[in-house]
Amino acid sequence: MREADRKRAKHQVEIAAVEPVMVSVEDAGRLLAMSTSETYEMIARGIVPAVRFSSRNTRVPLDALRQRMNELAVVGLTPVEALLAARAIQTEPAIRGRVV
Score class of each variant (00 low, 15 high):
residue 1 M to H: 12
residue 2 R to I: 00
residue 2 R to A: 15
residue 5 D to T: 04
residue 5 D to R: 12
residue 5 D to L: 13
residue 6 R to K: 14
residue 7 K to Y: 10
residue 10 K to A: 15
residue 10 K to L: 13
residue 11 H to S: 11
residue 11 H to V: 07
residue 12 Q to C: 07
residue 13 V to L: 10
residue 14 E to D: 13
residue 15 I to W: 11
residue 17 A to H: 13
residue 17 A to M: 11
residue 17 A to W: 06
residue 18 V to C: 15
residue 18 V to Q: 15
residue 19 E to A: 15
residue 20 P to N: 06
residue 20 P to W: 08
residue 24 S to R: 13
residue 24 S to Y: 12
residue 24 S to Q: 10
residue 25 V to L: 08
residue 25 V to R: 05
residue 25 V to W: 07
residue 26 E to N: 08
residue 27 D to K: 15
residue 28 A to T: 03
residue 28 A to K: 00
residue 28 A to Q: 05
residue 29 G to A: 10
residue 30 R to T: 08
residue 31 L to K: 11
residue 31 L to H: 05
residue 32 L to V: 10
residue 32 L to H: 01
residue 32 L to S: 00
residue 34 M to P: 02
residue 34 M to I: 06
residue 35 S to N: 04
residue 36 T to I: 13
residue 37 S to H: 15
residue 37 S to K: 15
residue 38 E to I: 04
residue 39 T to Q: 02
residue 39 T to I: 07
residue 41 E to P: 01
residue 42 M to D: 05
residue 43 I to S: 03
residue 43 I to F: 04
residue 44 A to N: 09
residue 44 A to M: 03
residue 46 G to N: 08
residue 48 V to Q: 00
residue 49 P to L: 07
residue 50 A to Q: 05
residue 51 V to H: 12
residue 55 S to Q: 08
residue 55 S to V: 10
residue 55 S to G: 13
residue 57 N to K: 14
residue 59 R to I: 05
residue 60 V to Q: 04
residue 61 P to Y: 09
residue 61 P to D: 10
residue 61 P to V: 10
residue 61 P to N: 11
residue 62 L to I: 11
residue 67 Q to Y: 06
residue 68 R to C: 05
residue 70 N to K: 15
residue 71 E to Y: 02
residue 72 L to V: 13
residue 73 A to V: 06
residue 73 A to H: 06
residue 75 V to I: 13
residue 75 V to L: 02
residue 76 G to D: 06
residue 77 L to K: 08
residue 77 L to I: 11
residue 79 P to I: 03
residue 80 V to G: 02
residue 81 E to G: 14
residue 82 A to T: 04
residue 83 L to D: 01
residue 83 L to G: 01
residue 85 A to F: 01
residue 85 A to P: 05
residue 86 A to F: 02
residue 87 R to D: 03
residue 88 A to I: 03
residue 88 A to L: 09
residue 89 I to L: 13
residue 89 I to Y: 09
residue 89 I to N: 12
residue 89 I to E: 14
residue 90 Q to P: 00
residue 90 Q to H: 04
residue 90 Q to A: 09
residue 91 T to F: 12
residue 91 T to M: 07
residue 92 E to C: 08
residue 92 E to N: 05
residue 92 E to R: 13
residue 97 G to L: 05
residue 98 R to C: 08
residue 98 R to P: 03
residue 99 V to N: 01
residue 100 V to M: 07
residue 100 V to S: 08
